[in-house]
Write a protein that binds this DNA or RNA. Structure first.
Lengths: 234, 234
DNA sequence: ACAAAAGTGTTCTATGTACACCCATGG
DNA sequence: CCATGGGTGTACATAGAACACTTTTGT
C-alpha cells in the first residue's frame, strides 16, 4: 500500500501508532500456559511483556500478529482471534499507541524451542504469570475470560491439543481452562453425542497401563454442521 | 497527549489512520432500524455510510465513537460496545485506514431529530439498508450477528426500549432481532423468572384497550447478580 | 495380585416446549 | 356487546446432574 498521496482527502487526518499484542495459550501436562518475553525496546526494556509488534502500513492486523507468531514460535496456521482494542490515551508511556490484542492457541509440542529462546520468550503457567508491562496483565485476564466463554460454545479447545488426543486429555484441558473438576462420564457422553470425534485404532499409553484411545476432531463435519446452525455447548 | 518526542524509541514506527464506525441500532414500532448518513468526504462523497470519524491523538476509540454519537444524535450515555477491527490493507480506497467498528443501542424516541437531519442521517429498517461505502455492509451484518448473540446472553435489549416498557413490547423486540415468533407464555415466564423487572402501577394503553403493565429493568440488581455469576439466557 | 487410569449406564431433577382459554376495556 | 390485545397454567419431552463399578495391563 502506498503512503498518503498529496491530494488524498485524508491528508489532514491524525495518524496513530497501532500495535498488536498476542496472548499465546498453550497446554502442557495438564497446565494452561502463556508465552511471554523480555521486552527489547525502551521504555521498560527488559521487563516481561506479551509478544507483539507495531502494525505496518502494508499488512492487516491479523497479518501482523501472524508475523509475530511465526517469528517467536516458528509456527504458521495457528488459531488466532481478535480479543479487543486497547486504546486508552495514557496506556503506553512511550507514546500514544493503540493496541489490538489477539489471542492464539497453539499445540505446545509443535513450537520451535530455538526460536522461542532466541527471542527471550518463556512459557509460564497461568498462576505464575509475572507482572507485565503496560496493560498486558489486563489483556491476559480478558483473554482468559474470552477463552472460557468461547470454549463452551465453540470446539476450539482442540487447537491446544495434538491432532491425536484422548478424551481424558481433552477433559483435563477443559478442567484447566475452567478451573473445575468435571464428571468423566457426563463429559464423555456429551462430547461424543456431537459425533464430531473420529476414534482411531491407536491408544496412548503414556498416562496409564490400560491406555486411552486416540481421537481426531472432524473439522470437515463440524464446518458443515456450523453452517446449518449447530449449537455446540460443553 | 503529546506527539512523539524526538527521542522516543517509537519514532521510527509506522503510524496509521485509525477510524471508528458506529452501527447504531434503534427499535421503532416493531421494526429494527439502523442510522446511516450521506458521507461528506471524498472518495465516495454523497454515498450512504455508517456514521464515524477518525480517531484523534487525544482520545480513546470509545471516546471517538461517543463524540460521533453525540454529534449525530445529541445523545450521551448510550450503550456502546466494540464489534471488531477491520484492517484489510485495501479496505479503503482513500488511504490505508484501519476502522474499529462499534455498535450502539439507542432509545429511538430520545434522539435529537434536528441533529440527525442536520447531518444528513436517516433511519432505515434493517431490510431496507442500501448499499453502503467500503465494507460497511459487512460491518452491519457482523453487528447483527453480535446483537443476536449478545441479546440471548445479556439483558441489553432494554437499551433499545424506553425506560418504562411492556412485556409485549420487549417480546416484539426480541422477535425483530431474532426474526422469529416467540410463544408469549413461555417468553413471559422465562423473563419474569429472573426477577429483574420491576412492575409499575402504570399501564401503557397505546396498543390495546386493556392496556399492558409497564416495567423497569432493575440495573442495580442485575449488576449484583452479574458479579456473582448469573447465567441469563433468553 | 494390585495399583492406576479408562471406560460404561441408570435414575432423578430441572428446564424448555407446546398448547388454549379467560380478562379487561374502548369503541 | 364485541373485537383486540393482555395475561395466565399444565402436561409432556428433553437435557443435565449425580452417582459406582468393571476393565485392562504394567510392574
Amino acid at each position: 500500500m502506498t503512503a498518503l498521496e498529496n491530494n488524498s482527502p485524508y491528508i489532514a487526518q491524525p495518524k496513530i501508532l497501532v500495535a498488536t499484542d498476542c496472548i499465546v495459550f498453550g497446554f502442557d501436562e495438564g497446565i494452561l500456559k502463556l508465552l511471554v518475553f523480555r521486552r527489547r525496546i525502551d521504555p521498560l526494556k527488559g521487563e516481561w511483556s506479551l509478544i507483539g509488534s507495531f502494525v505496518n502500513e502494508e499488512e492487516s492486523v491479523p497479518d501482523a500478529a501472524r508475523r509475530v507468531l511465526l517469528q517467536f514460535t516458528g509456527l504458521e496456521n495457528i488459531f488466532l482471534e481478535e480479543l479487543r482494542v486497547y486504546s486508552d490515551v495514557e496506556r503506553d508511556s512511550g507514546a500514544r499507541c493503540i493496541s489490538i490484542a489477539q489471542y492464539a492457541l497453539i499445540r505446545i509440542n509443535d513450537y520451535d524451542r530455538e526460536q522461542v529462546e532466541l527471542h527471550g520468550a518463556k512459557w509460564f503457567a497461568l498462576e505464575d504469570i509475572p507482572q507485565l508491562v503496560l496493560d498486558h496483565n489486563v489483556m491476559i485476564a480478558d483473554a482468559l475470560d474470552r477463552l472460557r466463554q468461547k470454549t463452551t460454545h465453540k470446539p476450539i479447545g482442540f487447537e491446544l491439543l495434538p491432532e491425536k488426543f484422548t478424551i481424558p486429555q481433552l477433559q483435563s484441558l477443559y478442567e484447566a481452562i475452567h478451573q473445575t473438576k468435571l464428571d468423566d462420564r457426563n463429559f464423555r457422553k456429551k462430547l461424543l453425542s456431537f459425533d464430531l470425534l473420529i476414534k482411531l485404532d491407536e491408544k496412548d499409553k503414556s498416562t496409564s497401563k490400560k491406555g486411552a484411545f486416540l481421537y481426531r476432531f472432524d473439522y470437515g463435519k463440524y464446518k458443515k454442521l456450523e453452517e446449518s446452525g449447530i449449537n455446540f455447548v460443553l
